[in-house]
Design a protein around this nucleic acid. Structure first.
Lengths: 240, 240
DNA sequence: AGAATATTTATTGTCGACAATGAAAATACA
DNA sequence: TGTATTTTCATTGTCGACAATAAATATTCT
């Protein structure tokens, strides 16, 4: 609970081009929110952001509207804007949708993947392996997300890809919350599941892809739920 | 192809309150886009909109960012903004996602519906019946959309409801394109399917709900595809 | 005349300023 | 001292103005 903002000194640097301002604010805020650099529920100050990026409030506001549209930020009219809180009460909705998207996108990938898709997917899997070996938790979370989004893209359905990406991003915040506080046995397990998934996609085995995706999703959901339950217990102890 | 904009005289009327401007522009544009009052691909002029609503360009722009975020409008940087074209080449993606959402939301509705949900759903079905009897095509399209969104809400999963609503909205434009040019036998058929759907949801028969939703989706998809094929033939004839 | 270059024009993206809003602080009242 | 009322304050939503951009048009040159 920091009263002081962790103002990551972003030098106004060389004068930005027309249209670069909104994009910069949007991208930066997005990453800081998903990495939990910005705490859920913490206020987002337009004026400070404008100063930080060396631009006026107008483009900052447009970036906020975009972020609000994606649910990353919540605007209290005439009051202020906060980083979207994590919606714990409705997590089951989230898990349900996430599981379905895992299945659907992996199925479609098995059906529609090209050779280039496979190359890109394997490349990301290599990156994931490296992150696991280096015990680099932030990298693992990020690469894992990109790995699954890339599979979804191989499935070639924009609607699924978009929703899945959004869900995985929301999941990034959850993983960040709980991942580092536990051992790294889990990520290693995912590694093998990912390999199986790639193999099924490679040989275009739709049913196998579906099964593996479903198991993978259940694995992750169960794990996060365990984390949360333990967390609840800890908090309960403290509050006693 | 009208060079002149159909400037629906929107009187600046009584001075709007703080925050009402963006909302008004957003809602109005949204409806005009979905009703095809604004042709897909036609330019959206910030200045004209500002004049039309009696506000400055700043709130108009924020409304545009929101609309762009939902894919209803496409912004060409430094150039102009157009009403999002209908993506005919990728319609199969759309149909796939639409069908899945029909199934998932109807299933969940059967599982989770309350008595109030049923009351609201039946009320909308009554409205649909009236629209069919009155041969009021725009009303039919609108009420049909609300009927299915309400069922999705009864399923209680925000992620599905949001995606489904978006898909149904996109579908509204397609239906508008083709509906009125054909007889009204089809809507009457949907009427019975809707009744079956409500019955399944009422008795919490998840499998039946799924089956009916799937059939309903296939029905609609096939119909639109037929429309499009006929349309293609017509256009081909003309271009010969 | 036709291509290359310069000029005009329309429209966007951004800015600094100001008024509306709602909360917090200060004051009055009991 | 505790509650109601007023004042201050921080921050938003909106405005009008201006500069950057890229297309359209005019101009020059061969």
């Amino acid at each position: 609970m920091s009263l002081e903002e962790p103002v990551t000194a972003q030098i106004p640097e060389t004068k930005r081009k027309r249209g670069q301002g909104v994009g910069a604010v949007y991208e930066t805020l997005r990453h800081e929110i998903l990495n939990l650099t910005l705490q859920p529920g913490s206020p987002v100050d337009e004026v400070k952001l404008a100063e930080r990026f060396g631009i006026s409030r107008t483009p900052v506001r447009e970036a906020m509207v975009k972020l609000a549209g994606e649910g990353l930020v919540v605007t209290l009219p005439n009051r202020f804007t906060i980083v979207a809180p994590i919606d714990f009460p409705n997590l089951s909705q989230f898990f349900d949708a996430l599981s379905l998207m895992y299945r659907v996108t992996t199925r479609l990938a098995a059906a529609n993947r090209t050779e280039e898709d496979l190359v890109a997917i394997r490349e990301l899997q290599r990156g994931y392996t490296q992150a696991v070996e280096a015990r680099d938790v932030p990298a693992m979370i990020e690469v894992n997300r990109n790995f699954h989004v890339r599979i979804a893209q191989a499935g070639r359905n924009r609607y699924y890809t978009d929703l899945f990406a959004r869900l995985l991003d929301e999941g990034r915040r959850l993983l960040r919350l709980y991942y580092s506080s536990h051992n790294d046995a889990l990520p290693r397990m995912y590694l093998q599941e990912h390999e199986d998934m790639i193999a099924a996609i490679d040989r275009q085995d739709i049913d196998a892809a579906d099964r593996i995706a479903q198991a993978h999703a259940q694995q992750i959901v169960r794990q996060i739920q365990t984390y949360i339950t333990e967390d609840r217990r800890l908090n309960a102890d403290i509050s006693l």
